[in-house]
């Protein structure tokens, strides 16, 4: 008897498990609506973001799905025919553009759109996405290791191609890291297509290795595992705050940047709640919250300096052509892979 009913009971328990997993996400008040929000915002900030939002909208619960830029983008694309996300809050604008091309975004003009820096919104009307803050490239330089290894503090991108840096530089792989991609696309814009690749060829000679994640080079520099990590300013400031012997260098040529941006995923069944969230995401309160970690935000008038964050960031940001970057993303990445992601690398 026992045996006979076993398959049934297995399915029942498995189903119960599934339900359990499902309901685990809805442990909020009964009337609350839950939004599934995909994000690439740094893990340590997620709780703060949700809490601040819930101060104003306690009836909307956020279920975070957090991963690095490349992975979140991949996930969204993979689920294209069967979207699981309601909102994306905090993903690279270039990634959102990619999703826009796949017609996955729900255009919406949130309240207070006019206060945003025009750079921080999709040019279409109504826009498919709105920006939160700028996420800018920078170099994390470990002063202790620099001294020990005789590696001088760089001031420019070009510095990094000098022989003194051989084996002392780490940067993210643009194929998996959003930071890596903004570096590469900014170099191509700064130095021109040909000059950009030439620069990278030279840089490649000095690179110890490419990481999958954009924050890792800075964390490795903070831990002294490497002297120079090509990363982004936010990460550098955070590590410095932890006591790492870091200098955050803004190269003189200018720095690439991308926006963390917000959008509604087309086909969501919770459009109303999603719109409420997007409205809030460009509110003054939200911008002030972004400003706690990022110096450059969507409403520039609210921006205050951030501790350990280099002051010159805003002036050094290049005039980034996101449309160009998004359109050429695939070509750039495959060219990069062909050149650098092979076994000719240092062993």
């Amino acid at each position: 008897m026992h045996i006979k009913s076993m398959p049934k009971s297995i399915t029942r328990v498995l189903a119960a498990t599934a339900v359990g997993v499902f309901t685990a996400g809805i442990s909020a008040p009964l009337f609350a609506e839950t939004l599934t929000v995909y994000t690439a915002v740094e893990a340590e900030d997620l709780k703060k973001y949700a809490a601040r939002f819930n101060e104003d909208h306690p009836d909307i619960k956020i279920k975070w799905v957090r991963d690095s830029t490349g992975i979140v983008t991949a996930k969204l694309l993979a689920e294209k025919n069967n979207p699981k996300a309601d909102v994306v809050w905090g993903l690279a604008a270039t990634s959102l553009m990619l999703l826009g091309e796949e017609n996955m975004l729900q255009p919406y003009a949130p309240k207070g759109l006019d206060k945003l820096d025009p750079k921080f919104r999709d040019s279409k009307n109504p826009p498919s996405w709105t920006g939160m803050d700028a996420w800018v490239a920078s170099i994390c330089y470990n002063t202790v290791e620099g001294k020990k290894n005789g590696v001088p503090k760089p001031t420019s991108w070009k510095d990094l191609t000098k022989p003194a840096y051989k084996g002392h530089v780490i940067m993210p792989n643009p194929n998996s890291s959003g930071t890596g991609f903004l570096d590469v696309s900014s170099w191509l814009q700064l130095f021109g297509e040909e000059g950009g690749w030439k620069f990278m060829d030279a840089l490649h000679e000095n690179i110890a290795r490419y990481t999958h994640s954009g924050s890792k080079p800075c964390k490795l520099a903070a831990a002294g595992e490497i002297t120079v990590g090509v990363s982004f300013a936010f990460r550098g400031a955070k590590s410095k705050a932890k006591g790492a012997p870091l200098d955050i260098v803004i190269p003189t040529e200018g720095i690439g940047w991308d926006m963390e941006a917000t959008s509604i995923i087309k086909g969501t069944k919770k459009l109303k709640a999603a719109q409420t969230l997007v409205d809030w995401s460009i509110s003054e309160k939200a911008n002030k919250m972004y400003n706690e970690g990022y110096a450059v935000i969507g409403i520039p008038s609210l921006a205050k300096p951030v501790k350990y964050f280099p002051k010159e960031v805003a002036t050094k940001m290049i005039d980034n052509d996101f449309a160009w970057a998004a359109k050429n993303r695939k070509r750039i990445l495959s060219e990069w892979q062909k050149r650098f992601d092979s076994k000719s690398d240092p062993k």
């Binding site: 490349g70 992975i71 983008t73 991949a74 694309l77 993979a78 792989n173 194929n175 998996s176 110890a208 290795r209 490419y210 999958h212 990445l333 992601d341 092979s342 076994k343 690398d345 240092p346 062993k347």
Partner: peptide, 25 residues
């Protein structure tokens, strides 16, 4: 290889990179 492989690519990490990094399923 994922953690300590550095630039040394192997098949298993390539699958990961193709799928996760480049969304090239």
């Amino acid at each position: 290889p994922k953690v300590i492989g550095g630039q040394f690519n192997v098949l298993a990490t390539d699958i990961y990179k193709q799928v996760i990094g480049q969304q090239n399923f």
